[in-house]
């Protein structure tokens, strides 16, 4: 489905009614269930999250419990929104976060199934909100460079190959939303970890901690309970920032080299 498709003509504005089948769960300790809601008179120019805002306002005014979901910047750059919509992380549009998904992607009368990211490493906090602090701990394990503080260094002081800088930047575009984990049949976080490792491994600033970074981040990834990568490519297909699966191969190389060459 194209960003302009779904309801007919080019950017045609109209109001639609959709039925929502949404996952409701009190907390990580209780069993959840699907509940059905009617979202009526929804503008096709609304974002998917705005549609949820409207629905939640109606639920609150009716004295019912609203649906809990994660959101922050609503500009597609923070990686906070996380909904598995009609069997796809972030919904039907390619390279789009849930907050940038618009209701023109859906047809009048359509039933939309909305689920949380499902992975043992991402336990449900409530409804559609999951705990993604496992990603934070992976970053803490090695997704950084250690530098002495002081005056800012001239940006051009260290020469960087343009192709490597571009590849590093492309990997750095990862917003850590977790769609890769959600889509992977193994709940693997390899695309996320590989993006973070690649981002720093290609730059001279990341060179000093290159080996320990790969080893420590993978060790933390395993500790958090993510699965292994079997190169199916589902992660790449759903990534809102189009992070390439080739980064995973690079992480494999970094990890193997670090494992074979480490002193300890």
């Amino acid at each position: 489905m194209t960003p302009l498709g779904g309801t007919g003509g080019f950017m045609e504005h109209k109001n639609i009614n959709v039925k929502l089948k949404v996952w409701k769960q009190k907390n990580s300790q209780t069993a959840g269930r699907f509940e059905t809601y009617e979202a009526k008179n929804i503008s096709t120019e609304m974002s998917f999250l705005e549609m949820f805002d409207v629905l939640n306002e109606e639920l609150i005014s009716d004295g019912k419990e609203p649906i809990t979901f994660d959101h922050d910047c609503r500009e597609g750059i923070c990686g906070t929104c996380s909904m598995y919509i009609n069997g796809r992380p972030h919904g039907p549009w390619h390279a789009t976060t849930t907050c940038q998904l618009h209701m023109r992607a859906f047809n009048d009368g359509e039933t939309i199934v909305v689920e949380p990211w499902r992975a043992n490493a991402f336990p449900v906090i409530k409804d559609l909100m999951v705990d993604r602090t496992a990603f934070e701990r992976i970053i803490q394990a090695g997704g950084f460079i250690s530098v002495n503080t002081g005056n800012a260094v001239d940006a051009n002081a260290i020469p960087v190959d343009k192709d490597k800088a571009d590849a590093s930047f492309a990997a750095a575009a990862c917003i850590g939303c977790g769609a890769c984990v959600a889509a992977c049949k193994n709940s693997s976080a390899m695309l996320f970890v590989s993006a973070k490792v690649t981002h720093l491994a290609l730059l001279p600033q990341g060179e000093p901690e290159r080996r320990t970074r790969a080893l420590n981040m993978v060790a933390q990834m395993d500790k958090e309970g993510f699965g292994g990568c079997t190169n199916t490519g589902a992660c790449e297909a759903v990534c809102p920032k189009e992070i390439s699966i080739d980064n995973i191969a690079r992480l494999n190389k970094e990890y193997l080299a670090a494992g074979l060459l480490s002193e300890k």
Binding site: K21, W23, F34, Y84, N86, G87, R88, P89, V113, E115, R118, A119, N120, A121, A183, K185, N186, S187, S188, G225, F226, G227, G228, T230, A234, V238
Partner: peptide, 13 residues
């Protein structure tokens, strides 16, 4: 790997 997702999705990718 199968054990890494206790509950599957209602609609699969």
């Amino acid at each position: 790997n199968r054990g890494k997702r206790k509950r599957g999705y209602e609609v699969n990718l």
